[in-house]
Design a binder for these strands. Structure first.
Length: 885
RNA sequence: GGGCAGUUAGCUCAGCUGGUGGAGCACCGCCCUUACAAGGCGGGGGCCACAGGUUCAAGUCCUGUACUGCCCACCA
């Protein structure tokens, strides 16, 4: 005996109960030797910096939908959860927290500071795990990972050491991007370029031999103390004769050469460029090509160095003001103009990034990239495909990846320097002696690795690599990577490079890049704009299933999602609709109904619903497999609401009251079957409400089970019945026609009327006769005659459906004029369609060149329209006569 | 400067390989019909951004234009 569900769906208790149950029964902890095709997904590990945002909610929902669907399809599914230590980002938030106590990390010292970050990680990391739970993510908690846990750290060291010995990791002095606030080097893609208004100054450099001068254009006059050349285009007639001469650096008076290089754009500025190899990426290249001097004028704190003469000790911005003033005073500033130019900013703290020369560690991405590029699309497919071009372009133009960071939170670089001979020892374990000379007392490199270095190993490091784990054997490569396109390069490309190199197989078969979640106005959500939608608050307010359904329904490939609270509220109605449909069903399914053969079930409406069910089963399955999440959601929505609730539940109501037990059984069994399967179809998207209802449904075995373990319903070919479905649709059209007539004539739906139907042929007549009760109930009729309209009163409202005439006698109260307007409207529509059809059919080339089947369809249509028009005209004539009488 | 998306009903968006333009929300009207008013039933509303082209036939394919958004890029 099942209990009645409460009147309204209350998500809170239901959700927490199921969360707990699934975790306790280890429902999502797969055994490597369990049967089924392997299916695995590595979670994009959220940063332990703060709370999950709506983008995470989208990401986790989509992954969960795929995982639950894969389980339904009998696959052996592994979804490993975890979090990322997020080097710079986490260090920054902890430093900010420290600042509130008036402390800096240096006050604590490295060890104490790192401990403090670990404490933060415990706290916030756990909050994030709870949020993953809240979203209903069916992850395997027994395999939880963190990028800095022991196993993953071992993987990091192993990878670093091996790449070092292969020459794919190297240390070198290069120009890198320096954030003076985070006090660390950044990789190229950690710099965000932003158009900014700036000023372009023209500065005169005098020739050393006093034979003239050359004017260069610069946006960064504070770098003048670092100038080691002036560069012009070799074919620039204006400067040709002075190439090779020397000029004096303004104010400082240092003598530097004029060089020529085709890199210079003659049309820009004055066509002459000052070269500062230590403070500009291009100038660095020029400096190397022309063997220039390298002078560091700005230090890592953004302060002018001793090389800057009178400006030493000034902050770079003050230096700029002062040097411009000084040059102007010297009469060597012939002009200045406003320009738009790109400025690099730190992606973590938005401080302007300074190109800086220093010794750093690099991964030879240039050598690893070709394999990664080649893997797509043969070994790994990217969805949507539009991203493949971007992928290729990025990998083709890649530069070596700077991986050392001058911060404290992260994987310390496993490289030690010998105090005796200065040699480097790179090893997985702390070495006791120098590799070169055997001396002891080695000191470890102070730097840590870029956070993306460990993320790059995630798909295999989480499965136990470098050990030979059962997980790796069973589940690597992962089936699909689901992530936002914003980390395509940071993460996806690097995983590909590392995966191919260390596992000889790509880390994933598919990459599904989902959109960004924006606000209703299309703006990026951010705390500063104040337009964030907090997923937890939404779950609290509307329930997890409503949020999940909304995100799924909006996840159309290749398009951003504009989300607003109203949308979530809207889909909550759908969750509730399902709930109430189930309540109705349960009233009649107190006990398991007697089984009937679905392929031989009685009743056109039952056959129709089972036919629809076959279609939606098939279509949704396909949509899930092809990552068309929005289609899957919509298919489920339509089936449940429009077909199951709006039609079928209404159609079986008379059955359920019937004395005919076979009829009652058929209705109940189809109701049971359709609801049951609909729940399974919707379960990947709405796990909680479906689990709760499922549990209340009777089963043949008599006891409640867990829908999470229920397979995707098998196809039932015997239920595919095109002809019966078409017939049912005809009956529906008739019913809608009656309702429309009533509504438009302002007859209350509840007011029962009589009806006369004149079928177009005997086949229709028979069909209508079998569906007499359905029509009477759903159209709310007090009487129904099926036959000729000879004895119909002339004062009748009418409609024509597939040649079938539907006549509703009007009683005194009804407004006769509005029926005339209605008929005219109907006629106008038919005539418009007729004109279009006949125009087509009178077009010789159409008849001659279009496929026969298209032409025939058009002919049939025209014939149908003509018939409808004639019948409507006749009806109108009768009606008009009645009106006149 | 290059590249990639997008432009369809008031709003947010579907529309696959070309063959009578859809959904949800919003709006209007009638209904508390015993699962659901978070509901039922019905309705109005679109020269599918613009201009060409291919085709018997174009929202759909091609070319160009205009906006919008994103990505990449060393023009000081």
């Amino acid at each position: 005996m099942t209990e009645l569900l409460p009147k309204g769906y209350e998500p809170k208790n239901v959700e927490s109960r199921w969360r707990k149950r699934w975790e306790e029964t280890r429902a999502f902890t797969p055994a490597p030797d369990a049967p089924g095709e392997a299916f695995s997904i590595a979670i994009p590990p959220p940063n332990v910096t703060g709370a999950l945002h709506i983008g995470h909610a989208l990401n986790l929902t989509l992954i969960d939908v795929l995982c639950r669907h894969a389980r339904q399809k009998g696959k052996n599914v592994l979804w490993i959860p975890g979090t990322d230590h997020a080097g710079i980002a986490t260090q920054n938030v902890v430093e900010r927290a420290l600042a509130k106590e008036g402390k800096r990390r240096q006050d604590l010292g490295r060890e104490a500071f790192v401990e403090r970050v670990w404490a933060w990680k415990e706290d916030y990391g756990n909050r994030i795990l709870d949020q993953i739970r809240a979203l209903g993510a069916s992850v395997d908690w027994s395999r939880l990972r963190f990028t800095m846990d022991e196993g993953l750290s071992a993987a990091v060291r192993k990878v670093f050491v091996q790449l070092y010995h292969e020459g794919l990791v190297y240390k070198g002095k290069y120009i890198i991007n320096w954030c003076s606030r985070c006090h660390t080097a950044l990789a190229d893609d950690e710099v965000e370029h932003e158009q900014q208004r700036g000023r372009l100054w023209r500065v005169r450099y005098h020739l050393a031999d006093d034979s003239g001068s050359i004017v260069v254009a610069t946006t960064r006059p504070e770098t003048i103390p670092g100038d080691t050349a002036v560069c012009v285009h070799p074919e620039d007639e204006r400067y040709r004769r002075i190439i090779g001469k020397t000029v004096l650096v303004p104010i400082l008076g240092r003598e530097i050469p004029i060089i020529a290089d085709a890199y210079v754009d003659r049309a820009f500025g004055t066509g002459a460029l000052k070269v500062t190899p230590c403070h500009d990426h291009n100038d660095w290249t020029l400096g190397n090509r022309h063997h220039l001097q390298f002078i560091q004028a700005i230090d890592e704190n953004g302060v002018m160095t001793s090389e800057s003469g009178p400006y030493a000790g000034l902050a770079k911005n003050s230096c700029r003001e002062k040097i411009v003033a000084d040059i102007k005073a010297a009469g060597d500033l012939p002009g200045a103009e406003d320009v738009e130019h790109a400025v690099g900013r730190c992606y973590r703290c938005h401080t302007t990034v300074e190109p800086h020369v220093s010794e750093q560690w690099f991964v030879a991405a240039t050598k690893l990239a070709p394999a990664a590029r080649g893997a797509v699309p043969e070994l790994t497919r990217i969805y949507p495909e539009a991203w493949v071009k971007t992928w290729n372009h990025w990998l083709d133009n890649i530069r070596d990846w700077c991986i050392s960071r001058q911060i404290w939170w992260g994987h310390r670089i496993p490289a030690w320097t010998c105090p005796a001979c200065g040699a480097l020892t790179v090893a997985e374990m702390t070495p006791s002696a120098c590799r070169a000379c055997g001396a002891g007392g080695l000191t470890q490199d102070e730097d840590v690795l870029d956070t993306w270095f460990s993320s790059a190993l995630w798909p295999f490091s989480t499965m136990g690599w470098p050990g030979k784990s059962a997980e790796l054997a069973r589940w690597y490569p992962t089936s699909v990577l689901v992530t936002g396109f914003d980390i395509l390069f940071f993460w996806v490309a690097r995983m590909m490079m590392m995966g191919l190199h260390f596992m000889s197989e790509p880390p994933f078969r598919h990459v599904y890049l989902h959109a960004l979640v924006r606000d209703a106005a299309g703006r990026k959500m951010s705390k500063s704009t104040g337009n964030v939608i907090d997923p937890l608050a939404m779950i609290d307010k509307y329930g997890c299933d409503a949020l999940r359904f909304t995100l799924t329904a909006f996840a159309a490939m290749g398009r951003d999602i504009r989300l607003s609270e109203e949308r979530i509220e809207g889909y909550r109605h759908f969750v509730n609709k399902l709930w109430n449909a189930a309540r109705f069903a349960l009233i009649h399914l107190a006990e398991m109904p007697k089984e009937v053969d679905p392929a031989a079930v009685r009743g056109l409406h039952n056959q129709w619903l089972l036919h629809s069910l076959e279609a939606v089963k098939n279509d949704m399955d396909k949509a899930f497999t092809e990552y068309r999440f929005n289609d899957a959601a919509q298919l489920g929505y339509k089936f449940l609401w429009n077909e199951f609730c709006d039609w079928h539940l209404e159609l079986i109501k008379p059955d359920l009251q019937s004395q005919d037990t076979e009829r009652v059984n058929s209705a109940k069994y189809v109701l049971w079957l359709a609801l049951r399967e609909a729940l399974v179809l919707l379960h990947p998207i709405m796990p909680f409400v479906t689990a709760e209802i499922w549990q209340s449904l009777p089963t043949p075995a008599g006891k409640a089970t867990d829908i999470a373990g229920e397979p995707w319903p098998a196809p039932r070919p015997g239920c595919v019945r095109e002809a019966e479905a078409r017939r049912m649709e005809f009956i529906q059209e008739v019913i809608v026609a009656v309702r429309t007539v009533k509504a438009e004539l302002n007859i209350a739906p509840s007011q029962k009327t009589g009806l006369l139907i004149h079928p177009a042929d005997t086949r229709q007549a028979a069909l209508l006769e079998t569906c007499r009760e359905m029509i009477m109930t759903l159209a709310r009729l007090e009487s129904l005659q099926i036959g000729t309209l000879l004895n119909a009163p002339k004062a009748s409202a009418s409609a024509v459906i597939q040649g079938c005439q539907v006549i509703m006698p009007l009683k005194g109260v009804v407004d006769l004029a509005s029926e005339l307007t209605r008929l005219d409207k109907e006629l106008a529509k038919v005539e418009k369609d007729m004109t279009a059809a006949s125009k087509k059919l009178h077009n010789e080339s159409f008849v001659k060149r279009a496929p026969e089947e298209v032409v025939q369809r058009e002919r049939d249509r025209a014939a149908g329209l003509l018939d409808a028009r004639n019948k409507l005209l006749a009806l109108k004539k009768r009606f008009t006569e009645a009106f006149e009488e």
